[in-house]
Computed example of a mutant assay.
Amino acid sequence: MKKLLVVGLMMSNFVFAQNTKSDSTKYDRSVEEDLAYAKSEQQKTKAEKKEKPLPLSKKGQVFVFYGWNRAAYSNSDIHFTGNGYDFQLNNVTAQDRPTKFGIVYFDPSWFTVTQYNFRIGYFIKDNLALVLGIDHMKYVMDQNQTVNFKGHISDPEYAAMVQNGQVNLADEKFLTFEHTDGLNYENLGLEKYQNLIHKKNIDLVWSYGAGIGFMFPKSNVKLFGNERSDRFHVAGMGTDIRSSINLVFWKNWMLRVEGKAGYINMWDIKTTLNNKPDKARQDFVFGQVLAGIGYTFNTKKYK
């Protein structure tokens, strides 16, 4: 009986010891797996933190841009009012006036001479930027044209220039009319961005959007032989739609080509040095193509 009891105790100890060892081994293996998993997740998180986001894509990113433009304008009816006259010239044609290419395009002291564009954008959400812009265009009425006339002029000298409901503007005595210092469109827009190509050092990004703003021209106008009016002032409003292709290289530098179309309405164009009542108003559609260079960067730090 004693022998049987001793054998039973030895077997139970053996089984208990085996179970304890098995449970301990299982427990130890689980802890090791948990530690390995935690370590891999930590390494993954560090890798994600080290990787900078794509350019022109993440909330908090900023870009600045400077470039040059060419513009085209629809025909426009220009209405003039003042002391002794109230008339409209119909279907007036106009062109832009690009500066001849040279050092003036790169000399900061002369940058306002060219037809230039400036942008600063901030990404308020992923892929959505709020963009503040200045479009310095130039608008020059074609001098060699005959236009339809409607209205009246009390001065007999200038009234005599109207023949059969038309007036010839070629000799510049009746009118010269320009927004050359310039046709300044100060605008605020929203632009949506989408990455098309992502390589090691090159990204191709497409954007589209719309803007609205005010017109702040310096209009060079000489009407009826009066002294030329050329004062900066708020003359009206503008709005536009736009789309661009952006080539981002070396992570930060950017080449942009943009096209835009818009509508301008100016109801307070200064035509003489008299503040009142001499003024003109006009509205027209414009198209613009621009290109230039920019820089994009993150406002958030990535370790």
Rank of each mutant, 00 (worst) to 15 (best):
M11W: 12
S12E: 08
N19T: 10
Y27W: 11
L35P: 02
Q42G: 11
A47M: 12
K49A: 13
K52V: 13
K52E: 14
P53R: 03
S57L: 01
K59G: 01
F63K: 03
F63R: 02
F65I: 08
Y66T: 08
R70K: 10
N75E: 00
H79G: 11
F80W: 03
Q88V: 08
D96R: 05
D96I: 08
S109V: 12
F111Y: 05
N117H: 04
G121I: 00
L130M: 13
V131M: 02
I134N: 05
K138F: 05
N144S: 15
T146A: 02
N148M: 04
P156M: 10
Q163P: 04
N164V: 04
D171H: 13
E172D: 12
L175I: 08
L175E: 04
H179N: 07
N184F: 05
L190K: 10
K192Y: 14
I197W: 13
K199C: 11
D203P: 00
W206C: 11
S207F: 04
G211S: 03
G211N: 09
M215L: 15
F216H: 10
F216S: 07
P217N: 08
G225W: 11
E227Y: 08
S229L: 03
H233I: 12
T239N: 12
R242V: 04
R242L: 14
S244I: 08
K251P: 06
L255H: 12
V257H: 01
G259C: 09
K260T: 14
G262R: 01
I264S: 15
W267D: 14
I269D: 01
T271F: 01
N274V: 05
F284I: 12
V285P: 09
V285K: 07
G287H: 00
Y295C: 03
T296I: 02
N298C: 06
N298V: 01
